[in-house]
Design a protein around this nucleic acid. Structure first.
Lengths: 136, 136
DNA sequence: TCTAGTTCCTCTAGCGGCTAGAGGTTCAAG
DNA sequence: CTTGAACCTCTAGCCGCTAGAGGAACTAGA
């Protein structure tokens, strides 16, 4: 039996976050001591590790909820899990592409060029959208 | 004199967002009609375009506030503007790197491999952090 | 001048995913 | 039995908006 603090230490998920996951329906309500403190078992440990890992990979809580649901039915086809992961991958790739465009644009304007604010390339470029190389 | 709706149409910033920028101190409180409606001038149009552009480039509102402040003092050295833009560029680059690591990991696990949830590569990989190629 | 329809006003609440703090209780060690 | 750490609940805040309620003001046409 683990206290919430031990669970936190073992998974790297902060204590308030664990309580918040419970509230959000990602983990089951655990048993309690006579004094109303949460006590966790190995199942909770595994599930929280799963959540932690999925969060690290950038999955949203809704996706994680779905994945957990799926995990509870080992006989069902896993096309859904595939779909969720692929959709997420697409999303991540799009975010990368967008950020890359931003980085390119920022690189172009980030080298100030002048000495005082009045002739500052950065501020001028920001003020005038027509100077941009690409849409964003 | 522009109504808030016209300003919105010309800058592509939604009406509630304009009001919110005012609240957040990014744009000045505009004049009002006798009936208490906001009326904007060209200065507001320019500033809002500036804000819009900076937001598109991913600057946070705090940075934008600083940049606006700087823009108001054309005689001052522009090292600060440079610093803000470079810091932001660094930040964007870091986010790209992180997302790239995620994408790599997701690519590795996203192809399910099995047919039912029980043997699903995706769910197993998520459950077991040791299968990961790199830290994240 | 009246009316209809659009736009505007303020205020409040909600999104995701936590995080922080107040104020109080329970547990474990000595 | 006392101490002090860890726990409890509840509320509020972060960013950058977005949505909706309920009402007032503008504008074009009849």
């Amino acid at each position: 039996m683990l206290t919430i603090g031990e669970l936190s230490r073992r998974t790297g998920v902060k204590v308030p976050t664990i309580r918040w996951y419970e509230q959000a329906g990602l983990i089951e309500e655990p048993g309690r001591t006579a004094g109303n403190q949460r006590r966790y078992g190995d199942t909770d440990l595994e599930r929280l590790a799963f959540i932690r890992h999925a969060r690290d990979l950038g999955f949203g809580l809704d996706s994680i909820r779905e994945l957990i649901e799926l995990g509870g039915h080992p006989e069902r086809p896993c096309a859904d899990a595939d779909r969720i992961a692929s959709a997420h991958l697409d999303d991540v790739r799009q975010r990368i592409a967008r950020l890359q465009r931003l980085a390119d644009e920022l690189e172009r304007i980030a080298d100030c060029g002048g000495h005082s604010v009045g002739e500052c390339h950065v501020l001028n470029a920001l003020g005038d959208h027509h100077q941009c190389a690409a849409e964003h």
